[in-house]
Simulated assay, not measured.
Amino acid sequence: MLVSRCKFTGISAPFSVGAFVKHLAVPLSTRLHCALVNAEGGPQSRAVHCPKFQALKSHQKEQLHLYVDALLEWNQRMNLTAVREVGEVMERHVEDSLSIVPPIRDSYLSRCGASCGKISVVDVGSGAGLPGLVLAIAEPDWQVTLVESMRKRCVFLEHAVNLAGVSNVEVVNGRVEDIGNDSCFREHFDVAVARAVAEMRVLAEYCLPLVRVGGLFVAAKGHNPEDEVKNAETAIRSMGASLLQVCPVESHGPYGQRTAIICLKGHPTPRKYPRSPGTPAKEPL
């Protein structure tokens, strides 16, 4: 796995994953995995009834089990998510991330004129790997790049990717403002996704420079994003894109109705990556 493929201003040299893991002293436990698979009653039993999770193949479920175990183990030492229970992680994060797969597939097939069997996806502000790592497990033919600015979270992502045996993921440590200006990544991806990162206006400026002409930007939002979308219209147009669809997404988790905001990249973005003043903090997970 590659943590920092290109060099960016202000990003230090590659670091030792092994040394960081040793420093954390967090041994992998099978306790959480067993609870997820075998418990009866309580949140754990509800987790395995998530419809989209249940639709996966057995080895994909096993990979997600391992990922959730690692997430909860490392969460005892790092601030990865406010969710602490297996069932909540499955409903709030895994099932919720899986819910954006159908909109991505449907929109790509109908608008991009090609099969979505082998596409490149970038998850901007991946954090704990949501939704990018979940998408990579659910769609093993997709090549997924997880972009995360915090080095500690990148170490966790590398650990989770290796532990779950996911071969179609690359982890990149860097600020999206720098990555969007780098030729290694600029207008390189078929699809950019973002979940719980920032408001739509800012997301458009973060994500669209990474999307190739003819590609998609998909933002996972709550049930009532109309004001966000309206406020983002100018930013979307300035990035060479148009609003394609605002579609409700079926979600069985506690969030209730979710929405996928889908933009189509129509022409190259301005050469200089825009920087939005007063960028809001990352949305809570």
Rank of each mutant, 00 (worst) to 15 (best):
D96W: 09
I119Y: 01
L56K: 07
H33E: 15
A114Y: 09
E170A: 11
P102W: 01
K118S: 14
L208V: 03
A35N: 10
D141F: 14
Q143V: 02
A114L: 11
T269I: 04
V161M: 06
E85V: 11
Q63P: 01
H59Y: 14
A82D: 08
C207S: 10
V121G: 00
L146H: 10
S58K: 12
Q54T: 14
V17F: 01
A241C: 11
P209K: 07
D190G: 03
V86F: 07
T259P: 04
G132F: 06
C154G: 08
V155Y: 03
G253S: 15
I261Q: 03
H93Y: 13
R111H: 15
G266D: 14
L285I: 13
L2G: 08
C116P: 06
P225F: 01
T269Q: 08
S45V: 03
G87P: 08
P277F: 06
R212S: 10
F15K: 02
V68S: 03
E139Q: 12
A35D: 13
H93Q: 12
H33S: 13
A25H: 07
S183R: 10
P280S: 06
H188V: 03
A25E: 11
R77H: 15
L157P: 02
K265F: 08
G125E: 02
E88P: 05
A114E: 11
N224Q: 12
T269S: 14
Q257N: 06
G278M: 11
W74Q: 01
R212Q: 12
H252D: 11
P51N: 13
V144C: 02
V211M: 04
F20K: 07
N38R: 13
V193H: 03
G18D: 14
S149V: 08
K61I: 13
E170V: 15
R271C: 11
H159P: 04
T81V: 11
R46F: 12
S238L: 13
V171N: 03
L208P: 01
V161K: 03
K230H: 14
N173F: 05
H267V: 09
E148N: 06
L24P: 04
Q143C: 04
S167T: 15
R77K: 15
S110T: 15
V124T: 08
Q44K: 02
E73H: 12
Q54E: 15
A192D: 00
V121S: 03
L264R: 07
L244Y: 04
R77V: 12
D141K: 13
F20M: 06
P277R: 09
S167D: 14
V155L: 03
K152M: 05
V124E: 01
L157H: 06
V166P: 05
R195I: 10
L80H: 01
P274H: 11
A219G: 11
A39E: 14
Q54M: 14
P254F: 13
